[in-house]
């Protein structure tokens, strides 16, 4: 479905960009981008460095005002946001639990439960600035969980996480999206993992160069040229979307571990 067609049912759309152009220092960072995300939909934005992926997210979030065009958010939309950069300052004494409490009004028990759900049970009393990249992402996901968002926005959610941890994180994100039944917009460099947990892929290179189901985008010559991937490389990782949905709603500890090389299990 095209972005325009989706915009037809505007009452349902969570966020949408319409003809969004962002000019920064005389350069077009984004050029006439149309995009819409419906409830429960999982959209991944891929594209080369400097393609404007993060800028597009920031426009959708209302953090950047487009030079022309508009960004529309459903009124009252609750967003769970995982920023790409999260600089932490040792000058501020802040425990993980306190950080969770600051974003939500959830009770202590619920906060602890959310940490268990993201596989970060032991971190409640830890200093936020002492977490590893993977631990921090899990804590941010726990915080997003507690806010019960309609839309989860993730900017390069596995950046700075080691390879095996990346797969766990993508699985976790899929499970959380299942549980919350929320929409997901994710920016990623990484086509491999994206294929597994997304309904629609948008390939961005300042403009939308193509969009569609993961398989169709994967085979798009422009995408291959842009990302410099070869077909066999991609084919190794099949779309194991069924796998993610198969766990619907039930939270499974992250130890549940099936490497992609084993192929998707039922």
């Amino acid at each position: 479905m095209s972005a325009e067609a989706r915009l037809g049912g505007i009452g349902q759309t969570l966020v949408a960009a319409r003809g969004v152009t962002v000019v920064r220092d005389g350069k077009r960072v984004l050029d006439q981008v149309d995009l819409a995300i419906g409830p429960g939909e999982r959209l991944t934005i891929i594209g080369p460095n400097g393609a404007g992926k993060t800028t597009l997210l920031r426009v959708l979030l209302g953090l950047v005002r487009p030079s022309s065009g508009t960004a529309i958010r459903r009124p009252g939309l609750r967003i769970g946001y995982l920023p790409q950069e999260f600089p932490l300052d040792p000058a501020l004494p802040l425990t993980v639990d306190r950080f969770l409490a600051l974003g939500t009004r959830a009770a202590g028990e619920r906060r602890q439960q959310s940490l268990v759900e993201v596989g970060a049970a032991g971190l409640a009393g830890r200093a936020l600035d002492r977490l590893s990249g993977g631990e921090l992402r899990r804590v941010l996901l726990a915080r997003a969980l507690l806010r019960e968002p309609d839309l989860l926005v993730l900017d390069e959610p596995v950046q700075g996480v080691d390879l095996s941890g990346q797969l766990d994180l993508y699985r976790l994100i899929g499970r959380i999206a299942d549980e919350l039944r929320c929409g997901v917009v994710m920016v990623s460099h990484d086509l491999h993992f994206v294929m597994a947990a997304t309904d629609r892929v948008v390939c961005l290179n300042r403009h939308v160069c193509c969009e569609g189901q993961p398989e169709s985008v994967r085979d798009h010559p422009e995408v291959r040229a842009l990302l410099g991937v070869s077909a066999p490389d991609l084919a190794v990782y099949t779309h194991d979307h069924d796998h993610v949905h198969g766990l619907s709603g039930r939270i499974v500890p992250p130890e549940d571990d099936t490497r992609p090389s084993h192929g998707p299990h039922g």
Binding site: R58, L61, G62, L63, I79, Y81, P83, F86, L92, L94, F99, L102, G103, L128, R147, V153
Partner: peptide, 16 residues
């Protein structure tokens, strides 16, 4: 609370 939130991460605070 809001001041602490934007001290931790101003964009996260803005989104919230």
């Amino acid at each position: 609370r809001p001041l602490l939130a934007l001290t931790i991460h101003d964009e996260l605070a803005a989104v919230e």
